[in-house]
Amino acid sequence: MRPFDYTAAQSVSQALAGGGAGTAYLAGGTTLVDLMKLEVMTPRQVVDINRLPLRGVSADRDGLHVGALERMSDVAGHPLVTGGYPVLAQALLRSASPQLRNMASIGGNLLQRVRCGYFRDTSTGCNKRRPGSGCPAVDGENRGHAILGTSDSCVATHPSDLAVALVALDARVRLVGRGGTRDVRLADFYLLPGDTPEREHDLRPGELVTRVTVPALAWATRSAYLKIRDRQSYEFALASAAVALDLRGGVVRDVRVAVGGVGTRPWRLPAVEEALRGRAARPEVFEAAAALAVEAARPLTHNGFKTTLLRRTIVRALTNLVG
């Protein structure tokens, strides 16, 4: 770990005053401290934001609001979430471990870094960690890597489960900086790697994520998060699907499908949704729609199975939701 200065901000304005390039905000620290120990992240200043009032889970006409410093475990168990948006609660509960969920914040979760083994090992190259140093995953170990949204520069999957569920629900994040406040759709917030994999999202230096808003969606009560992985807990997704269904008389009136573990960012599937709308909620329909999910897939040497797995994951999630 490189030496750094630590300060604890007492207010948003104080945090913003200390923010900027070379500074990292500290929330739960489960990503930041981990990567600092590995010397993958080497901020010169760390500003602890845990005392800021970015808390609370509430609902109003605009939808569900979650403060950026709410802990994953608290949000997962909140009645507004378990009752109105099961997909969110499930995505949270299938993440990490109870100990981590007790520490980790919602804002930090959305900004967590990729789990690519090369990114985490400073003895290897990695374009994301050290721009221009190459991407060893392309020819190396890539069983867990992405099939959607990759570039020659980077093929790492976006790791957050929560983000997949939020993208399915069209969530927005509120970003506060010295220049002002803006609301951004989470789906637009994340960037494709392209030639600049070191740029992962549209957060400007010094900006804070203060809250997440999920637009009201009555039929999100029929929603679920299915996460497929080798072991049954404490592992990132090989493929996952966040789905919500508005079902009337066996027909899909409306639907949301976003997938994880397969894309370089949380991946919404509008074409799949379109193919389902107005159709009977039947396995053949689900299978035909799910096939559209992988049309643009670019498998790597070890992750070819993900094209099949992704289709099946979507079909299984939808089938279970119909019940």
Binding site: R115, G117, G140
Partner: peptide
């Protein structure tokens, strides 16, 4: 263990990537 043919490095030499059973398994 996944030994990388190019480098001889164990690509999953840590407990995040070398999967051991957890209680749920």
């Amino acid at each position: 263990a996944t030994v990388e043919p190019q480098t001889g490095r164990i690509a999953n030499g840590n407990f995040a990537d070398y999967l051991l059973p957890v209680n749920a398994d």
